[in-house]
Design a binder for these strands. Structure first.
Length: 647
RNA sequence: GCCCUGAUAGCUCAGCGGUAGAGCAACCGCUUCGUAAGCGGUAGGCCGUUGGUUCAAAUCCGACUCGGGGCACCA
């Protein structure tokens, strides 16, 4: 007797094992039809497999949040089948579901182009119409290897060899096509539906390694309904409209050009935004007990050798010619060679090292808006989100081991407040531990990792583990914020470093009168000014809150008779500290409203003859077509209050 | 760096073997108007660079440069 308990609490008993499909049919014909899979004690299984033991079961339909992943994985298989039918000789490799859809990686000499998509989509639809049953088979390892070798599937053959020996190896068959796969899958290709679309083709490496063969990856997405697919495509269009490069052009914030690839030419409006954010952050740092410093861009190789950067980070550094102008530092290793700083930490240690420090000086928090250069591969560059010259809102906290916890808590509080005030109430934290290439002994890493973990716990922060992703000198916390359309961006960081201070000879005199090496906490909140500005542009779609907006208000005249008064209004707003422009052009108010609205100006102040007479202004706020007429002094007062940066 | 894709006026884009096009912006007039485009005119291009095919190339082919989407890398 097998007892299966259903989500509603009822229990169904069967004489012998039943399949998920039979269970669904026993509950009702509607459910049998919409059943896609079954969850047995929370584990998703094929509908056709017998349930052999007592368990909590639930029938998975398209309403189950986990069903989408199933659908997408199946779509990847159908894609692969369609491609192999259309392009014989193409090898299959992997094809998982992803967050937004699915992909499948193929090996084929001829490139796929987006022009092939129509054909492939049609064939996929055909396979859906064939409604092929999807069957699970358990295969013997040797048979599997031979099968793949015989069928010219060298990648699959390679992979089949490496599967752990104790695992059951399953093959899923749909019609004449099959793939080695763990499953689970839908009962038949007909369940897929046709709300799918192939999105793009790109390169990918076999097993994610650039040393391996290059495969062709076809991306697609699928939903249970056309309506959801359409909504997703609309959302993509929305995201494209928010693209910071597009908005930057529209709002004249900055530009980039090939003579300085990966760097930014800030225009007046963009630089104003930068200055506003820098001032906002600087105030918080001042209040938070930091002292600001400024250190050199170009620093002798010897310092980078001492810090370990020359060894661990040199590939990413810009190396200069030496002092005498000799370019060939390889032929003249004794000559002095400089490098543009890729990080600020070694320079901050130099400041720490000036003069004898006592434990009474700790914690010492040295902050810098430090401009760093890193050589990034051309393909990695992306607008101002990924650049080669960026300005870190960097700081290094020199402290004792005992102070790590208190400093971590203090930092998390500071960061939380800043993210909230920028408009990002939600963030999460990743914990990255020791990477394969690193400096420092295992004992030091053990200590660093456990201090950081304990301190995070004390700060009330939940950590998501991110193994092997730490910096070469220490483990780190990475703060990831979520934007207005649900995308995640890694910005802040806190890194514990027991290595670099010692290497660079930092020490302080302790209570015991002996010399000790301080711990250094590397930390950033924005991460980089450039990147944060890019994120803010996309988050707000250029419609910044008043305090951030480069131009906060434009005074628009309705008739030229109001020109003199408009200048007076402008002067009053400037006097109140607002960033204002005046539009005296001989254009209709409709035209001016449209133009300044498209330019995303937060406040428009229209003045006509009535306003000249009554000393009023009519305010129209971005995003609303309502107007409000106020006495000039009231309008100035109100805007001034609202334009104040969050305190 | 690798794969796909693209490059035409300041911007957005059409043209895809036969004399280079539109809208917006710019400039010049007219228009003074109360909340998302008033009217008319003028000017603006080595069709990314470079080889080739052709009677003829923005258009077809190759190379290169740069942009975009991914991969890898990463703040």
């Amino acid at each position: 007797m097998i007892n299966l308990s259903l989500p509603d609490g009822s229990i169904r008993s069967f004489e012998k094992p039943v399949s998920g499909a039979e269970l669904a049919a026993s509950i009702g014909p509607g459910l049998a039809k919409s059943a896609l899979a079954v969850k047995i004690d929370g584990e998703m299984r094929d509908l056709g497999r017998p349930i052999e033991r007592d368990a909590k079961v639930s029938i998975v339909t398209s309403r189950d949040p986990d069903a989408l992943e199933l659908l997408r994985h199946d779509a990847a298989h159908v894609l692969a089948q369609a491609v192999q039918e259309l392009y014989p000789g193409t090898q299959i490799t992997f094809g998982p579901a992803t967050e937004n859809g699915f992909y499948y990686d193929f090996a084929r000499a001829e490139p796929f182009t987006p022009e092939d998509f129509d054909k492939i989509e049609k064939r996929m639809a055909e396979i859906v119409d064939r409604d092929l049953p999807i069957e699970r088979e358990v295969w013997d390892r040797a048979k599997l290897k031979k099968f793949f070798v015989d069928h010219g599937e060298s990648f699959k053959a390679e992979w089949s060899e490496e599967l752990p020996g104790n695992e059951e190896i399953t093959v899923y068959r749909q019609g004449t096509w099959q793939d080695m796969c763990k499953g689970p899958h839908l009962p038949s290709t007909g369940k897929l539906g046709k709300a799918f679309k192939l999105m793009r083709v790109s390169g990918a490496y076999w097993r994610g390694d650039a040393k391996n063969a290059q495969l062709q990856r076809i991306y697609g997405t699928i939903f249970f309904s056309d309506k959801e697919l359409k909504a997703y495509l609309t959302q993509l269009e929305e995201a494209e409209k928010r693209d910071h490069r597009r908005i930057a052009k529209e709002m004249a914030l900055f530009h980039q050009q090939e003579e300085a690839a990966g760097m930014v030419f800030w225009h007046p409006k963009g630089w104003q935004l930068w200055r506003t954010l820098e001032a906002f952050l600087r105030k918080r740092l001042d209040d938070g007990g930091y002292v600001e410093v400024k250190t050199p861009q170009l620093v002798d190789r010897r310092l980078w050798e001492a810090s370990g950067h020359w060894e661990k980070f040199r590939e990413n550094m810009y190396i200069s010619e030496n002092e005498d102008g000799l370019r060939d530092y390889i032929a003249n290793p004794a000559e002095r060679v400089f490098a543009l700083k890729p990080m600020n930490c070694p320079c901050h240690v130099q400041i720490f090292n000036q003069g004898l420090k006592s434990y009474r000086d700790l914690p010492l928090r040295l902050a810098e808006f430090g401009s760093c250069h890193r050589f990034e591969p051309a393909g990695a560059l992306h607008g101002i989100l990924r650049v080669r010259n960026f300005t870190q809102d960097d700081a290094h906290i020199f402290c004792t081991e005992k102070q790590i916890e208190a400093e971590t808590i203090k930092f998390c509080d500071l960061l939380r407040g800043i993210y909230r005030d920028l408009g990002f109430p939600d963030f999460f934290v990743k914990f990255s531990d020791r990477p394969p290439v690193r400096a420092g002994s295992d004992a030091v890493w053990d200590q660093a990792e456990s201090s950081l973990r304990d301190a995070s716990k004390a700060a009330g922060i939940d950590l998501i583990l991110n193994p092997g992703e730490g910096a070469f000198y220490g483990p780190k916390l990475e703060f990831v914020l979520r934007d207005a359309i649900g995308r995640d961006w890694q910005c802040g960081t806190l890194q514990v470093d027991f290595v670099v201070p010692g290497r660079l000879g930092a020490s302080y005199v302790g209570e015991d009168g002996a010399r000790h090496v301080p711990v250094m906490l590397h930390r950033a909140i924005f991460g980089s000014m450039e990147r944060m500005i890019g994120i803010l542009i996309e988050h707000y779609a250029g419609r910044f809150p008043l305090w951030m907006a480069p131009t906060q208000a434009v005074v628009c005249t309705i008739v030229s008779d109001a020109d003199g008064y408009a200048k007076e209004v402008e002067a009053a707003l400037v006097e109140a500290g607002l960033r204002v422009e005046t539009d005296l052009r001989n254009e209709k108010i409709n035209y001016k409203v449209r133009e300044h609205s498209l330019a995303k100006t937060p406040a428009l102040l229209a003045v006509g003859n009535r306003d000249v007479e009554a000393r009023t202004v009519s305010i129209r706020r971005l995003g609303s077509d309502k107007q409000e007429t106020l006495a000039l002094a009231d309008a100035v007062h109100r805007l001034k209050e609202e334009a104040r940066a969050p305190q």
